Simulated scan of single mutants.
Amino acid sequence: MNVVCKRNIRLHPANVGTIYDSVRTINKLNSNIPINFEILSECPLPNNAKIDILETKFEYQICKVDKKILVNGHNVDCTLNSIKDKICLNKSYINLVHKNCSNLILSIVENISFDFKIKVKVKAIAYIDNCRKVFFEAFGEGEDHIKSILLSNVCAPNMVKYSQNIYLKFDNDIMGMAYPEFLFLSPIYDCDLNIDFLLGNAFLNYIINLDITSLISSDLNLPSYK
């Protein structure tokens, strides 16, 4: 542990909290959005080209987060536009609290929605006249919106028996994927009957995690004097 010294006073950093319990809940969701792909190639692709997608690269940016958290059926105040939160438990969230109970099982419901900006990059091959093939890349952007309800149970100490505050720490994590076999492209032609851009129908997969940690806040360490 690092020690900060100032004259004859030694200050020891205090622990933020002690982990009492932790749990992870995972939901898997599917989505379907249209995306226009611009072809990044100097070689023209004629209208009779057959396209095969080799690889996709998926990126997203969270534009908006909206959520609602219930503890034992009670709606609690939370930070709306954030995937992280920390809630101090109080007796109004718990029914029939007695001192003879050492710990409590809390039922957690998180109703969360996300607005995304989506970027998909495609590596593909175009077969031309059955004897020539051209490798090319295409890039597209779109918007997506998903909703999920995550149900969890977490153990927390009985707040009546503790002088310290009891907290629940929430942390969401999201992973998105766009598999080549679930991306369908339709060519749009220019005046010379070459492929101008690709109209895509993308089936996207999301994995949403909810990590909940039950924390006991630690007492501050008092300065010690030499």
Rank of each mutant, 00 (worst) to 15 (best):
I51C: 08
N221A: 02
I112Q: 00
D129Y: 02
L183H: 01
E110C: 07
G142P: 02
V109R: 10
N2H: 10
L150T: 00
L198A: 14
M175I: 11
D66Q: 13
D219F: 01
Y127R: 13
I118W: 03
S214C: 04
F136N: 10
S92W: 13
N47Q: 07
N30Y: 02
A14P: 06
D52E: 13
S22D: 08
F114C: 00
C101S: 07
K226R: 02
F114T: 00
R10G: 09
F37H: 15
N221V: 12
I26A: 08
I118D: 09
P187I: 04
Y127W: 12
L40V: 07
E38A: 15
K119D: 06
A126Y: 04
S218L: 12
G17F: 10
H145M: 07
L70R: 06
E141R: 01
F139N: 05
A49Y: 09
L215D: 07
F182I: 08
N209T: 14
R10T: 15
V154Y: 04
I51V: 08
D85W: 04
K68G: 09
P46G: 00
K50M: 14
K64P: 05
E55R: 15
M159W: 03
S22G: 11
V134T: 05
Y93G: 05
Y162D: 12
Y162C: 08
M175N: 10
N194L: 13
F203V: 15
P187V: 05
A49I: 02
V71C: 06
N111D: 03
L89A: 01
N201A: 07
S82Q: 09
E55Y: 13
N221L: 02
N130D: 12
I51G: 13
V154E: 03
K133W: 09
N205W: 04
N36T: 10
F37C: 15
A14L: 07
N153G: 07
M177W: 13
D144L: 01
N36I: 01
N153E: 06
I53N: 02
T25K: 10
T213H: 04
F184C: 09
I118H: 10
R7W: 01
R132Y: 02
N75V: 07
K226A: 03
K67N: 02
N95M: 05
S214D: 05
L185D: 05
D115W: 04
G142V: 03
G142E: 00
M177T: 08
F58Q: 11
L168Y: 08
V23N: 00
K226S: 05
R24G: 13
N90V: 08
I146K: 03
H74Y: 08
L80R: 13
I26F: 01
I105K: 10
A126N: 07
D66E: 14
K117N: 01
V76Y: 05
M175D: 12
G176W: 01
V160Q: 14
I19E: 10
N27F: 00
I174M: 12
T18N: 06
K117C: 05
L80T: 11
L220Q: 10
K68Q: 11
N47R: 12
L204C: 06
I19C: 15
N209Q: 04
L168I: 13
T79P: 12
D144E: 01
N165Y: 06
G140T: 02
I149H: 10
K119H: 12
L168W: 00
N100Y: 03
N2G: 05
F170L: 10
